[in-house]
Simulated scan of single mutants.
Amino acid sequence: MVISVVLAAFVLVLPVELPDKTLFASLVLATRFPPLPVFVGVGTAFGLQVAIAVTAGSLLSLLPQALVSGVVAVLFLVGAVILWRSATSGPEDADDAGEGKEGRSFLRVAAISFGVLFAAEWGDLSQLATAGLAARYDEPLSVFGGAWAALLVVSGLAVFLGKNLADRLPIALIRRVAAVLFVVFAAVAVVETIRALT
């Protein structure tokens, strides 16, 4: 593992996920079920989602360098625009987190949590970022470790700190900081594209 790549993935994914439906879906699940099985289910879903994104990004890296860095730049620019435009909107809702407290066994709650988060994360900005980082760096395990750690931190905050955290998050600021990070990564990818073409 390369620590700088792990940190890059962590620093990029964490602010993207803080104001995301992930935090609020985990929060809703934790208010309805015991926190530990929710965290296990959510963490497992994130692990699988990150593995899929890293695999997609690694496959992308098999293409010519100029094409890869151009695609990475576009992925990050799209993410930056989405984040910036959503900065003034409220938190994404977590209405799909399921109703009621039925089925309180550890495995059932973990399975419900896994299903909710696995479905909610498809095409998410963190997946785009993870795929882009996996394509940019030739370090899939490092990207996986950093991205998964960031997602576990976000879900852990939601599950174990709960409502107090959701009420105090400056969502607009977090989304704007994440958008700026995406622009920086896009700019680096553009520079790499130009170098690969010359």
Rank of each mutant, 00 (worst) to 15 (best):
V54T: 09
P170F: 04
V71Q: 11
I171A: 11
F118Y: 13
V184A: 13
A134P: 02
I52P: 06
V16R: 04
A166H: 14
A30E: 11
L7T: 01
K101E: 13
E99A: 08
V180T: 06
T88D: 10
K101L: 08
L14Y: 00
F114G: 00
V153L: 14
V72K: 03
W122H: 06
T22P: 04
D95I: 05
R176F: 07
A80I: 03
L107W: 14
A131Q: 06
P35T: 11
R32Q: 15
R175L: 01
L18N: 07
L27V: 04
Q127H: 04
L77P: 04
E17R: 10
K163H: 12
L107F: 14
S105E: 14
L83R: 03
V74R: 11
A30V: 09
V28M: 07
A196D: 07
G100I: 08
T44D: 05
A45G: 10
E99T: 08
F185W: 14
V71T: 15
R195G: 11
F106E: 05
V72R: 01
A9N: 06
S4K: 10
G100E: 09
V177G: 00
F33Q: 13
F144V: 03
A8N: 10
L181T: 05
L125I: 11
D95S: 14
P140N: 03
R136I: 10
V191A: 13
Q65S: 15
V184Q: 13
L59H: 14
S69I: 07
V40P: 06
I194M: 13
L27K: 05
P37C: 09
A119T: 12
F182A: 13
K101Q: 12
P19G: 07
E17M: 10
A178V: 06
S69N: 15
W84M: 12
P19E: 04
T22M: 09
T198W: 09
A53V: 01
S61W: 01
R168K: 12
R168Y: 11
A87T: 06
V116Q: 00
V153Q: 01
V109Q: 03
